[in-house]
Nucleic acid binder design. Structure first.
Length: 279
DNA sequence: AACCGGTTCAACCGCGTACGA
DNA sequence: GTCGTACGCGGTTGAACCGGT
């Protein structure tokens, strides 16, 4: 338990709650319900403001609170919902019974955000980051583990994240030749681990402009980000070209930051029916 | 054992919104 | 339409905790 020094402001106590205060609050709410939070402190004999009482109850004392580590499933739900909703902690919390918005927010900031960053995924946009070269090597093993993870969920959201990780992995590998030693590059590209990336021949062609949303959405799985329309030259990409001619996997227009189509389909249901168990 | 820097998480703060007078 | 009040939400803070040296 924390022990901030208790402060008195306008005669109202602030800082960490004592077990006695907790007991008073629980006893009162169990008997009478919280009613008006503003008047609760006086009625319950607490020298606290109503806001503090509400927070203490909803974030800590409520009987249905689940304490302890987040399960893998909860973690995946948070990532999915955050990708779709952003920092809407209260809405995310409604889909995780027993978890509070505060707890989820803390968990996101201290764990999940870092985890996504390590995998080269921007925790804000949930898109692959266009990391500098120095980040490439350090990200590889995270991307490898993430891109092969057996994600499975009703919305298929994780498969999109998996694809993003694969795309980022390939881009990171692709950027290696121009900046690192050939031997290192060859050893990485010949690694058995990444053979799954080559399940079908990739027609690699130079791109003249950044990917559009449609390119990004539709072509990711088979071309991993490389354009493949009829306007493109049929000449295979010359590996000796500079890597700067590669398309950027990070969408450059705001339009491309839109919610993935899979999420969009469920978006309205989610927002209109926040109490729905459909998720 | 002592120190130090990073991490965690309960609690606070300020703002936005809903609602009634 | 406006004002005041109450509540909820997201961002931030800071003391405890933890691991490394």
């Amino acid at each position: 338990m924390m022990s901030r020094s208790p402060m008195l402001e306008n005669g109202v106590k602030k800082g960490p709650w004592t077990p006695e205060e907790d007991q008073k609050l629980v006893d009162y709410i169990e008997k009478y319900g919280h009613g008006s939070w503003r008047s609760l402190p006086n009625l319950a004999g607490l020298n606290r403001c109503g806001k503090s009482c509400r927070l203490r109850w909803t974030n800590y004392l409520r009987p249905d609170i689940i304490r302890g580590n987040f399960s893998d499933q909860e973690e995946q739900i948070i990532i999915n919902l955050h990708g779709a909703l952003g920092n809407k902690w209260s809405i995310i919390a409604r889909h995780l019974p027993g978890r509070t918005d505060n707890e989820i927010k803390n968990f996101w900031n201290t764990n999940l955000k870092k985890k996504l960053l390590q995998m080269g995924i921007d925790p804000i946009t949930h898109m692959p980051r266009n990391d500098p070269y120095l980040n490439n090597l350090s990200n590889l093993h995270h991307l490898l583990s993430f891109s092969t993870a057996p994600w499975d969920n009703p919305l298929g959201l994780h498969s999109q994240i998996t694809q993003l990780a694969r795309a980022q992995l390939l881009q990171n590998l692709w950027q290696l030749p121009s900046t690192s030693s050939p031997s290192l590059y060859n050893s990485l590209f010949n690694a058995q681990q990444i053979s799954y990336l080559q399940t079908s021949p990739i027609s690699v062609e130079p791109s003249e402009k950044p990917l559009s949303c449609e390119d990004y959405d539709g072509a990711m799985d088979d071309t991993l980000g490389f354009r493949n329309d009829s306007n493109q030259s049929e000449t295979p990409y010359d590996m000796s070209q500079s890597s700067s001619s590669l398309p950027n996997l990070i969408p450059t227009s705001l339009e491309c930051l839109k919610i993935p189509s899979v999420v969009e389909d469920k978006w309205e249901d989610l927002i209109n029916d926040e109490e729905s168990e459909s998720y």
